[in-house]
Amino acid sequence: MAGERILIAKVGLDGHDRGIKVVARMLRDAGYEVIYTGLFQTPESVAAAAIDEDVDAIGLSMLSGAHMTLAPLVVAELRQRGSEIPVILGGIVPDTDLGALHAAGIRTVLTPGATAEQIVGEVRAALA
């Protein structure tokens, strides 16, 4: 995994950044190179940054209820640019939304209570 790069991003207006910062450190401890976009990104800016930085996966953190609108838009922006970078979503997502998110191309959804082991495991699986 040496050298594998993960972009983690906050899209939209959601300022909850406790989780994404904890996940950043977990991934770094697991040996990944982690790039964090900072707050208030758009789907376009995340897709562009992911391609510019040549990352291997993208992690989105969404806790404000806008995931059904914004997460699929990130995938769409990537695909429009011809990129197949896997997108993992973490945050507050009701079970009933999971099907639609998978259908929209989100690789995996991680919800509250996920351990470091599970998070790193899902990233590893997405990169395999």
Partner: peptide, 15 residues
């Protein structure tokens, strides 16, 4: 931001 701002998409009335 107003509700019709570009960045408001998907967030209006949610939280």
């Amino acid at each position: 931001l107003d509700s019709d701002h570009r960045m408001s998409l998907g967030e209006v009335g949610r939280c």
